[in-house]
């Protein structure tokens, strides 16, 4: 574990002598504990994916290759609701858009050059981005990014497989209420983001548009309608607020 992490910290060897071992240990411990915590999401994701009819290989492929929790839940949720796999892929991609924004801070911090960027990109997730903030020193921030990124990757993938295997033993998912696992997970994922009126409005608008389109378009496409409407509103409101400040 320690070895993998030291290998995974590019450029930290030149900076580490200034950092106290105690501070490094704290950052590493935080990274591992956030990994263990997300393991519980992984269990529910694995169970949900299996309940939606995905094979163990397909479920694990999502966790290994897509590796961004909310997008994976969305993909499987669309499949479970009877939507087309490509509609699921679209929802997953739209939800993954926030990962691009983490690059603003991370590309500066990690100072990536050339091919290294391609490997690092996979570890850009909510948790690793959050753990790289406010560490006091750049080397510690990088360590935070890598310990959370690798910690979550390992735990998430193991937990996914365990959850999927567990749920395969169940014949009818709705008997155990597995069909509400996704909506419950979404509520838990939205809650910390609802900080201001604008976010609440976006949530309500998204919800209302999606429900309004249910009878008219195929399952899985309604959420894409919400995405379109909210994007238009976001662009328009950013224009008016920019004009207001000018």
């Amino acid at each position: 574990m320690t070895r993998a992490e030291t290998v995974g910290v590019p450029g930290s060897d030149t900076q580490t002598p200034h950092i106290e071992p105690q501070a490094r240990r704290t950052v590493l411990r935080d990274g591992i504990s956030i990994g263990v915590a997300t393991g519980t999401y992984g269990l529910s994701f694995g169970a949900l994916a299996a309940a939606a009819g995905l094979s163990l290989a397909q479920t694990s492929a999502l966790s290994l290759l897509m590796f961004t929790g909310a997008s994976q839940f969305a993909f499987v949720g669309v499949i479970a609701a009877g939507g087309a796999p490509l509609a699921g892929a679209m929802s997953a991609a739209l939800l993954g858009s926030r990962n691009a924004l983490y690059g603003l801070h991370l590309s500066r911090l990690l100072r990536l050059r050339g091919v290294r960027r391609f490997g690092t990109a996979q570890f850009v997730i909510d948790e690793s981005a959050a753990m790289s903030l406010d560490r006091g020193a750049e080397a510690l921030s990088r360590l935070g990014f890598w310990s959370a990124g690798i910690g979550v990757f390992v735990c998430w993938n193991i937990a996914t497989a365990v959850g999927a295997l567990g749920a395969q033993l169940i014949s009818d998912p709705s008997t155990y209420g597995l069909d509400v696992v996704a909506p419950a997970a979404f509520v838990a994922l939205i809650a910390p983001r609802l900080k201001d009126l604008e976010t609440w409005r976006a949530a309500f608008l998204g919800a209302a548009v999606a429900l309004a389109f249910v009878p008219f378009v195929p399952a899985g496409v309604t959420v894409l309608m919400s995405a379109c409407v909210v994007t238009i509103v976001a662009v328009r409101s950013s224009r008016t607020s920019a004009a207001g400040e000018a």
Partner: peptide, 9 residues
């Protein structure tokens, strides 16, 4: 805003 709206949807 997009992730929140999508999750709500």
């Amino acid at each position: 805003l997009l992730p929140v709206a999508l999750l709500a949807a």
